[in-house]
Nucleic acid binder design. Structure first.
Length: 502
RNA sequence: GGUCGCGUGGCCGAGCGGUUAGGCAGUGGUCUGCAAAACCUCGUACGGCGGUUCAAGUCCGUCCGCGACCUCCA
């Protein structure tokens, strides 16, 4: 099939037509979380963004191998004292847990939250700690190529040497001379800085001090792998030395992804990634929500509403809808008002979806209104155009809102469903469901959808009783039923065609 | 300080050379026992100042404001 998907490549800073290396197959790697804390709103964004990409590629008939790692070792934490303690190890010490216990706890939580957000699980979810041998091998290769050096049991990547034949900064736009010149006073105190030939060099392998908990033997002594190595190693192992798409948050662009490129080229000489994609940040009061500022709200807190900044609980689908209403490369600012707007929009669209799926078309093969017919057909096409234009989910949702209005109008007889031909109506319904459910990955959280047959039966009975009451103008009974159901979060709507609920 | 990005109506957010984004809130209607929902209607926005162009939120310059990265971060 002819691919028309254009994606913004961070490497060229342009939208490029996506062409997979192997026709029909796509290798997709997304940087996963470091599992040392509860996942927060910021984590929702990349995984929803790339989930939609994954779903869309899949819809187009491509066989996608989606690899997303779990970082359970390796990130150094630069304490003020400069001890360079591993994040996982630090958390373990603070919580008096085994490091792997910490890892498991937060990995489980991460999985739970991702499931709730309706993100599909990746094809492979490798852990850094399970690939120590491969990481050591890659370090050896880079040393053999003369682009890394060992000092006191640690191995550093020689950026200056690499830059002689390559361009360190090709992704981030950094200029090496500026990086060296711009090294501030505060950075001089960081662990290992004095061992490096140059301040811009980064660790591939770090010597472990005796009190360091996570440690592995290596040709350079007991230690642990460096910051950026795992992604290079695991992407190469499962997707090949050069693969199609690498995604992640913009905050990872430098140094993490820049270093990945350098490591990969330093090891294999090959460009590791054809298309780099970066999602923008979620902000709170205009500032990036993240660990370092401590201004994050966890997904659990959103789902329960249990946080001082939250006026209410927000469901997983409200969060998903909220994120999808903005383009992935724009920042999106959190606020209660914005989330409440997303919640209402989401509810409106879900209700419209259910309405649409229950509509019965009279079956006319000719459109009653050629203009309406043409408009709907054009709208259907535009949904795909928007996705092809760098996954513009905001525009897709705008189109689906148009369909929602139509569906409601047909239901209420405020517009004639026969204005569309049967085939166009079917197409509209099919594409709405495809976009909403399959590609945008939005799930129906309403009671009606989850109550099952028994609830349906009960509700039919209740509505029938209420109908009798209403016919007798027994408004007390009628309103009592409505109010009581409301308390159970079941809403009654009296329409022309009878009463419905959700 | 360096590199990059952003500033759109009350709020959130698409668009990025000429045509309605959309959602939420608000206005006025229709419907309705009441309510809710729904549908229709209305608002005419693109930080300031210059410039390019027949035509500019949309391109260029400049100024102001904000942010990201340069240290772990999605």
């Amino acid at each position: 099939m002819d691919l028309k998907l254009k994606i913004h490549n961070s490497l060229s800073k342009k939208k490029e037509l996506f062409t997979p290396i192997n026709p029909g197959f796509v290798g997709l790697y997304v940087c996963g979380p470091t599992v040392y804390g509860e996942p927060h709103l910021g984590h929702a964004r990349p995984y929803i963004t790339f989930d939609v990409l994954y779903r869309y590629l899949d819809h187009m008939g491509l066989k996608v191998r989606y690899v997303r790692n779990i970082t359970d070792v390796g990130h150094l934490e630069d304490e003020l004292a400069g001890t360079g303690e591993d994040k996982i190890a630090k958390k373990a010490r603070l919580e008096k847990l085994e490091p792997m216990e910490v890892v498991q706890t937060y990995t489980n939580s991460f999985h739970d939250k991702m499931d709730m957000l309706n993100n599909k699980r990746p094809s492979i979810e490798p852990r850094a700690s399970g690939h120590i041998i491969e990481q050591i091998e890659m370090v050896k290769q880079i040393i053999a190529n003369g682009l890394a050096y060992e000092v006191n049991g640690s191995v550093y990547f020689d950026v200056m040497k690499y830059h002689e034949d390559h361009n360190y900064g090709e992704l981030s736009g950094r200029i090496l001379e500026d990086l060296i010149a711009g090294a501030g006073e505060e950075r001089r105190t960081l662990e290992g800085q004095k061992e490096k030939r140059n301040s811009v060099d980064f660790a591939l392998w770090k010597n472990a001090s005796p009190e360091h908990i996570m440690r592995w033997p290596s040709p350079w002594g007991i230690g642990f792998p460096g910051w950026h190595l795992e992604c290079s190693v695991m992407s190469a192992k499962y997707l090949g030395e050069t693969f199609d798409i690498h995604g992640g948050g913009m905050d990872l662009l430098f140094p993490h992804h820049e270093c990945e490129i350098a490591q990969a080229k330093g090891a294999t000489g090959k460009n590791p990634v054809n298309y780099w994609m970066h999602n923008n940040m979620i902000t709170i009061n205009g500032k990036k929500m993240g660990k370092s500022l401590g201004n994050f709200i966890t997904l659990s807190e959103f789902f329960s509403g249990d946080h001082k900044s939250l006026e209410q609980a927000y469901s997983p689908m409200t969060i998903r809808f909220f994120i999808l209403q903005a383009h992935y490369r724009s920042t999106v600012d959190f606020s209660n008002e914005a989330l409440q707007a997303a919640e209402k929009g989401y509810n409106r669209m879900v209700n419209a979806k259910n309405t649409l799926n229950k509509l019965v078309h009279p079956g006319n093969e000719k459109a009653g209104n050629e203009n309406a017919e043409a408009a709907i057909l054009a709208l259907c096409e535009r949904c795909f155009d928007h996705l092809n234009d760098d996954i513009n989910t905001a525009q897709v949702l705008a189109e689906l809102f148009e369909v929602s209005s139509k569906a409601n109008a047909y239901q209420n007889k405020q517009a004639d469903i026969a204005e569309l031909s049967l085939s166009t109506f079917d197409k509209m319904r099919k594409i709405f469901n495809l976009m909403f459910t399959d590609i945008l990955g939005i799930r129906d959280e309403s009671t009606a959808d989850q109550g099952g047959e028994k609830l349906d039966g009960v509700m039919n009975l209740v509505i029938d009783i209420r109908k009798s009451a209403r016919e007798k103008k027994d408004w007390d009974t009628s309103d009592k039923i409505r109010d009581s159901l409301n308390e159970l979060e079941i809403n009654i709507k009296d329409g022309k065609e009878g009463t419905t609920w959700n």
